[in-house]
Nucleic acid binder design. Structure first.
Lengths: 203, 203, 203, 203
DNA sequence: TATGAATGAGATTTCATTCAT
DNA sequence: TATGAATGAAATCTCATTCAT
């Protein structure tokens, strides 16, 4: 292990290591949650997947729900970030296509998508509220694109709420059947879904 | 209470009651599973929802997983029945529209949809195999409609597997946000989804 | 069903039937206890073996332990009866030989031996005391034969208590390995055991 | 308490403690099984006897049956070891006498004999097979001594199978009546039994 | 920071027994 | 007498969490 001259790790080196461990735990946890569900996953499994002892997890997170919370927070943050960088002046169809692709690539990625939008019910009330609030913000952002497209005449008329939920459902459900590492690359799914789901709105 | 001549309640009256109780348990369980997920739901809750003592559940089902199995079996059976009665000579669009509507009405219905397609992972291997087999049969049937439409030229070309999964994802995800008893009737969801999801395929 | 002129079974016919049912239950229970042990045997199994409903057992016996008690009582009574009819003037060796044979034939018989000497621990204190008292009376009777033989000089000297326990152990342990209905007849076991166990004492 | 330079208890000290705890549990369990039988013994009782919390038992053994298995395995291993060190050139009577004594001393000892040969029925099929296989190997070894003695003319003729079972029955049944800690030392039982049981075979 | 061990609450499940019919 | 259904207490087992080291 790298140490500085006085024989101990320097404080920021330590801090960096701690952050790295936290992320490793989240990545490991996300993988197990995805495969077996939150409630069916034990702390021991998470610990094993992260190559730590069970007790040690509690040095980095204060509860199992806490781990889930940070998984979901990480994921929803990334999705919100996508929205921020979206060119809102492009054609609605193009915007929607980009959102769908980004959402899927993120969902099908190991760490991010894992338990992302799923299993909010397992969180205690306070954490759940936070996640739900962000998730709703994201959903509203998608809805805005859909509604705007309808107003502009770029999309056929319809109920923006229900249409948005149909889209997000198709995207989120992928976690149920997509197996990373198979021969179907995430990008292929993203393309096919974007084509189909955008065409359903094209005027 | 009706009795027959020998002073005991007649066997078939009893049998009918037993069947009714079984169904009541399934209905109750389905509701709780939907709200809280299989793993987070305790037998106590199911029992309370069905107005029985926890131990008494085991007179009707041999395990918690068994209850889930019968919920799912009931649901997937109903969906397969739908496919059987579908007029396969109608235009592909019409067929797909009907399947979508039927799937949704069933999914959003109290008893049938609850844990319908969800949570197969929680079943022990043998029961899971049975459900997965039926579910796959159903998915193949939907896919056939999609593929046929593409061949006939009624639908635009695309990957029938991925398209079908997008459709089923949109439909199944409804269990996550739809709250029965609210002001949005299932039929409204069915119409909006059918419109959107069929239009995405229309040539 | 046979009934007398007034259309009902006569009282003593009824009583006889009740006794027959009780015995049928004991026989059935003895068989199941022997195969699976008292604690591992459920009332439902006893009921099934006796071709009755579980609830109905309680019309004939007031508890599961009660059934075990009557099984054991029946068995130990039969053994005590053997002792009573034993010619105490015969040579000690002959007496012992007869006791061993009778004990084994009774033990290996379906009903009698089943849970005979075993599982006294499972009885509640009051019933246990009764059985243990009778069992001890029986053991003392066997011991008297052994001790008398030693006094008379018919048997070699030794500790009558330990010798008797060795004999009874050999006999009782047969329930662990003997399977009724096999090709080894109880009489063959009785002969071999009597030969061996008596010869060990012969002066 | 001894610590090594890094301030934690050393791994092998821990390992030794863990092994000690496992053995303490086995000893405790053996005692309770002997007194009350496997099925009637609760994990709470074992835990209490071992001075641990019930849940903690599962850190060392994965089920109640597992505990029973290791009790029996320990015991049957010890008996097989006895056979291995037996001088097969000695007179048959001497060999048998030694086996009987060793078997009894082991059976009447606290840890080893407790549930030794008893209660195999309570094990799940896979564990039962293992124990039964070893137990049968042991029985065959005893039988070989008996049969050899008959062939050599050292023992009177007879059925070696039944004779061996009579001997083992007498020995195993001791667990039912022998109370360790009383005034009868195991050696006294061993002597009396060996005398009696060998004499029954002496030509 | 890290670990193995311990705990306590709670989960599912079983089962003798009772009850209404 | 007989039955199917119901109950309540207890059993085994799991598991997130904590603790001593």
């Amino acid at each position: 292990m790298v140490r500085n001259s006085n024989g101990r790790s320097s404080p920021d080196r330590r801090a960096r290591r701690a952050v790295a461990t936290r992320e490793a735990i989240l990545r490991a946890a996300a993988g197990v949650f995805r495969n077996r569900g939150f409630a069916e996953t034990g702390m021991r499994e998470i610990a094993a997947a992260a190559d730590l002892s069970p007790g040690n997890l509690y040095y980095y997170f204060k509860s199992k729900a806490d781990i889930l919370y940070f998984c979901q927070d990480h994921s929803v943050n990334r999705m919100l970030a996508t929205m921020k960088h979206l060119g809102r002046t492009q054609p609605s169809a193009e915007q929607l296509r980009q959102v769908i692709a980004a959402h899927l690539l993120c969902t099908l990625d190991e760490l991010d998508g894992a338990a992302a939008h799923t299993e909010v019910e397992s969180l205690p009330a306070d954490l759940r509220r936070k996640i739900v609030a962000k998730r709703d913000r994201y959903e509203r952002a998608v809805r805005r694109i859909v509604a705007e497209g309808m107003t502009r005449g770029a999309f056929v008329d319809g109920d923006p709420v229900l249409t948005t939920r149909a889209i997000l459902g198709a995207l989120n459900w992928t976690t149920r059947w997509y197996r990373p590492g198979g021969k179907l690359p995430p990008q292929a799914v993203a393309d096919a879904f974007a084509n189909y789901l955008v065409r359903g709105l094209a005027a």
